[in-house]
Write a protein that binds this DNA or RNA. Structure first.
Length: 405
DNA sequence: TCTGGGGTCCTTGTGCGA
DNA sequence: TCTGTCGCACAAGGACCC
């Protein structure tokens, strides 16, 4: 989808069409989630600190964003995709891979399917999307980027909408591209590649594999060399299961005491446990993440023999890890996540029956039911109650940084 | 300028049992 | 009983993606 979050906002704000519009965190520590192409002309892009974005484009309209709405629109778009092929692999709210190999007899060649999908999306959800058609996921992703509009300082160039990379033409497409366009080349890897004299993909395709492995490690070297010639054999996987479930939150002002952090731990544990139970999963590995005021980040984790899905158990495991950390420098972020996910079997031992495990399970089930019926903020941990109600952590509720309050 | 949130994957170091 | 080695799981950190 093109500038997805902004485009969704513009459907209900047609007065803003053609103006620089930015969706994202509006607070001091917020970041940009999406920028209209008009805003991009001024150097505003996603992940840019909102404060910088305001400086670069002071006349832009800044909107806080509505994650629930974007999720709903994403579901509508997904329904369109499902009408063409069962092999749909969502990559994010606004991107997905579709394997249409098996449906060309039904709907025509892949470029025709791409055009039909664009028309359907425009008609049914009033949004523009760009499609890349290629023999594999990596090339399709690159092609979709080429299909999008481009914002230049003086003008916005419309994109072709659909870009096709025919089999056998992979190198023609890849060779002239800057190497940072490859999947997995970020700022750190880019610096290393520049040291090796690699600037374009064609340079990478020619480089000595041993020299590359010495710099990047053999795994990443093999990966990038394959991509440089357009090789990618990953299948489109429909219904991929999550490998971890977590929440983290950056605070508007740093926290300096264990008591403050303990309250936040309870909130995050409640949220993560709720999502685990909703997925009928438990986490064997629990990880506590702390980011200090200087942006230094640490993680502390433990692995249990049994999967955990109750907030009390998460607090029991992570509480001592939190106590061992000195919050003196100031903590700007606390996060909780569970990995090593597996189905939970609540098979109780006699010892557990005599202890509090059944009560935890029954309590959580009651909480889940109350939230289903009355909303997620109808009930929450006592420590999260403030004067203005219960502060319940919800997925995406604070996606782009803390608000000013 | 000052850096979100939700993820995946990889590397390195370490502890432990065979 | 002690020591070296190997494989494995885990812990921590980092790079990267949208």
């Amino acid at each position: 989808m093109d500038a997805f979050f902004v485009s969704v906002e513009l459907r209900s704000r047609p007065d803003l069409v053609g103006q620089p519009v930015v969706v994202g965190g509006t607070g001091r520590r917020g970041v940009v989630a999406a920028a209209s192409y008009e805003a991009r002309r001024f150097g505003v892009h996603s992940a840019l600190p909102s404060a910088v974005a305001r400086r670069r484009c002071p006349h832009a309209v800044f909107l806080p964003g509505n994650h629930e709405l974007y999720s709903e629109v994403s579901r509508q778009v997904r329904t369109i995709f499902d009408g063409y092929t069962p092999l749909v692999e969502p990559l994010s709210l606004d991107e997905a891979f579709l394997d249409v190999t098996g449906v060309v007899n039904l709907f025509g060649p892949a470029p025709d399917i791409a055009a039909r999908i664009r028309t359907d999306v425009r008609k049914q959800v009033e949004l523009e999307c760009s499609v890349g058609v290629a023999p594999n996921k990596f090339l399709a992703k690159l092609a979709s980027v080429e299909a999008k509009p481009v914002a230049r300082p003086d003008r916005i160039e419309p994109g072709p909408g659909v870009v096709v990379i025919e089999p056998g033409k992979e190198r023609d497409f890849l060779d002239p591209l800057p190497v940072q366009r490859l999947w997995g080349v970020g700022p750190v890897t880019l610096d290393k590649l520049h040291v090796l004299g690699v600037d374009r993909v064609r340079d990478l395709a020619k480089i000595d594999s041993d020299a590359l492995a010495a710099s990047l490690g053999s795994n990443q070297a093999d990966h990038l060399l394959a991509l440089s010639v357009g090789a990618d054999d990953r299948p489109v996987e429909a219904g991929r299961e999550a490998k971890s479930i977590g929440h983290e939150e950056t605070y508007g002002t740093d926290k300096y005491t264990h008591q403050q952090l303990r309250t936040e731990l309870v909130r995050q544990a409640d949220a993560v446990a709720g999502r685990l139970r909703a997925a009928s999963l438990g986490a064997r590995t629990l990880t506590l993440k702390i980011r200090f005021s200087g942006f230094h980040t640490i993680t502390r984790s433990t692995t249990s023999s049994e999967p955990i899905d109750q907030p009390g158990e998460i607090i029991d495991v992570l509480g001592p890890l939190l106590e061992a950390i000195d919050p003196g420098p100031g903590v700007r972020l606390l996060g909780v996540s569970g990995s090593n996910l597996m189905p939970v079997h609540h098979q109780l031992t006699f010892d557990e029956i005599s202890e509090n495990a059944p009560e935890w399970g029954a309590t959580s089930a009651a909480i889940d039911e109350i939230r289903d019926r009355f909303g997620s903020d109808a009930i929450g941990p006592a420590s999260s109650v403030r004067g203005d109600g219960i502060r319940v952590v919800q997925k995406g509720s604070q996606q782009w940084g803390p608000d000013e309050a």
